[in-house]
Design a protein around this nucleic acid. Structure first.
Lengths: 197, 197
DNA sequence: CCTTGTTTATGATTATGATCATATCAGACG
DNA sequence: CGTCTGATATGATCATAATCATAAACAAGG
């Protein structure tokens, strides 16, 4: 979102994260702007029986955990690393100063929020109105258009079926069976378990 | 969101809307900033068999349909009036000029977006991880805290069971039965069909 | 090449919310 | 006051995804 140079100039610091580590926890106060430099992070909620809902998979260059910086409330979800990762952090106060200094960066954030709201609205509509196959199909289309969680050369979905389940409110088995059905309908291709669409 | 005076000074115009009218339609281009002055509007998606998902009930003073103003894409849902309403509109271009002129208004919008993202994240978590009673209970708690869709004197929920169903991805009958259960558990009170919590 | 752990796959059974069918209630209005 | 309409209520049945159980495939590492 923000160039590394700008962040460093404003006093941001790097932080190295091991695999399967918690970066921040739902319900706690947030004092930092976070941006992923390398690796992979997921932003999740955890239900009663430890079941996970993935709100977003964060890819290098993307920011995460921003709500507290704008509305002053606590984190709405937890951030966990999938692999060894590097993040860059900036203090909340400095971040807000930076936005005031650079209105164009502020507008970029409003645009980002707009797109995220759009995606969450889409997902809500899906979870509420449609069955498994439709949900998965819509999710894949979104990945394709936004070039997220997908290899942009070979169109391979870079998520496990468990992760897809955790993004659509379904169980692994249902995802596996639904994807099979979508293959039979010719909507996608499965080769050695890998999904291409 | 923005004071009527400011809006008028920048050339906004009033528009009167009859009951059950469409203000804008999902998938079409958006050229206006909309703010509800009086009446009631809902922002919805419509599924395959005409079933409705209510993304938001808009109350006087609130703005709606802003995504296209920021990310340049089409409307993510349709806006329909529930009752006779009055809205005030400002051209997209003028709106963006206004934001540049008043950074504090821009920050107010970022905050609003933050809160909306927070709510949508919460709902997604609910739809994905929890059953009917939990969903409804969480929704009511949100109404209580945010003072939305609730009479702030008597705590009466100002929504029909059908509308609650359309916000939680459930059917009316399920909502009716779940609310009954919540009453038995003492989580709320039902009097002549009205829900108090 | 074999071993180990994770991911994908598939069948059988079950539980839950959707659906269908009807009935009752509350409020508005002439 | 009766009439009408939209909302709430309740029982019976059904369909679908969850759950449980188990197996096969694949990737990584020595």
């Amino acid at each position: 979102m923000i160039s590394i140079d700008t962040l460093l100039a404003w006093g941001a610091t790097y932080k190295k994260i091991g695999p399967h580590e918690t970066i921040f926890r739902e319900g706690t106060e947030g004092h930092f702007y976070h941006q992923l430099v390398s690796g992979s992070v997921r932003w999740i909620n955890i239900g009663d029986e430890g079941n996970e809902f993935i709100q977003q998979m964060i890819e290098p260059g993307e920011s995460f955990g921003e709500y507290p910086l704008f509305d002053g409330s606590v984190y709405a979800g937890s951030a966990m690393s999938n692999t060894e990762s590097v993040i860059i952090r900036l203090h909340k106060h400095t971040f807000r100063q930076l936005l005031k200094e650079y209105p164009e960066i502020h507008f970029a954030f409003t645009k980002l929020f707009s797109e995220r709201l759009r995606f969450k609205s889409l997902l809500l509509k899906e979870l509420s109105c449609f069955g498994p196959e439709h949900r998965i199909s819509t999710l894949f289309n979104y990945f394709k258009e936004s070039k997220k969680n997908i290899c942009y050369q070979c169109s391979q979905i870079r998520l496990t079926r468990q992760q897809i389940a955790n993004m659509t409110g379904l169980r692994v088995e249902t995802v596996i069976r639904s994807i099979k059905n979508l293959q039979h309908k010719g909507e996608l291709v499965i080769d050695r378990g890998k999904i291409y669409c």
